[in-house]
């Protein structure tokens, strides 16, 4: 079975090479004469105004976590869709119960207004 994934391995190798080779070449071939002014951090030509890290609105976190939950739900749908004919009515009903439970959560977040940005 693994031979099917050989192209993926090849792709990873080529991708790594595409990323690493230019960096190594740049290190080896390019002239490198740093001084204080060149190495100092700046932002649009000015000195940096503030720390790059800042507080995000917590609502981004809510959107991300809701995305993860539905992402997982979708992940459960893939094997189900592949074998739906084999597992028959029982498998179908079990997935419908699964979806129904999650729809409760979906309705809850919709009614709560968690999907609204304001």
């Amino acid at each position: 079975m693994l031979e099917n994934y050989f192209p993926v391995l090849l792709f990873i190798c080529v991708g790594l090479a595409v990323g690493v080779v230019p960096m190594v070449l740049g290190k080896l071939a390019a002239p490198n004469r740093p001084d204080d002014a060149k190495l100092s951090p700046y932002e649009c030509g000015f000195e940096a105004f503030e720390d790059a890290r800042m507080k995000f609105d917590v609502r981004y976190y809510l959107v991300a976590i809701l995305f993860i939950l539905f992402d997982l739900e979708i992940a459960f749908l893939f094997p189900w869709a592949v074998v739906l004919k084999e597992i028959g009515m029982f498998g179908f009903v079990s997935m419908m119960i699964f979806l129904a439970i999650l729809v409760v959560g979906f309705v809850y977040e919709w009614m709560k207004g968690a999907l609204e940005w304001e």
């Binding site: 893939f78 094997p79 189900w80 074998v83 084999e86 597992i87 029982f90 498998g91 079990s94």
Partner: peptide, 10 residues
């Protein structure tokens, strides 16, 4: 994935 699907939902 088929192997998994046969087991998870039954």
């Amino acid at each position: 994935i088929k192997e998994l699907g046969r087991l998870i939902y039954t």
